[in-house]
């Protein structure tokens, strides 16, 4: 599942970064505490978070995330979008809650696994 697929699955809108990136999501981390996100060992993480701040993007860059999804269509600051563009992190705004986004991602992964 690429970031373009994530945008579709989560009814989202790409706010920054490259929406055509071929990188594939390897794991989903849903968390608002950035120290927790930094602890994850998973590769090619998609970060689902309610933290609409520069720090979410900077954390995603540190762990080499495929992209960041902000829930509940929270307003995103210009600086956040700029940091995402500067660091090359695709940033998606989704109207879904974190729970609904997790369920949708889970279903999408299952569907993908079944072919």
């Amino acid at each position: 599942m690429t970031i373009a697929d994530v945008v579709k699955v989560l009814n989202g809108k790409l706010m920054a970064g490259d929406g055509t990136s071929p990188r594939v999501v390897g794991a989903v981390v849903a968390n608002d505490l950035m120290s927790d996100v930094l602890l994850t060992d998973a590769d090619d993480v998609l970060l689902l978070t309610s933290l609409a701040s520069d720090q979410a993007i900077r954390t995603a860059h540190i762990v080499g995330a495929v992209g960041v999804v902000i829930h509940n269509a929270k307003p995103l600051s210009e600086t956040m979008i700029k940091v995402a563009n500067d660091l090359g992190i695709p940033l998606v705004s989704s109207p879904l809650s974190k729970y609904d986004a997790c369920v949708k991602m889970h279903d999408a992964f299952l569907a993908e696994a079944r072919g």
Partner: peptide, 15 residues
């Protein structure tokens, strides 16, 4: 509120 301050900074660094 900015996603930090949970008391994991030093322990994460050590880890």
């Amino acid at each position: 509120s900015l996603g930090f301050g949970a008391g994991m900074g030093l322990s994460n660094s050590k880890r």
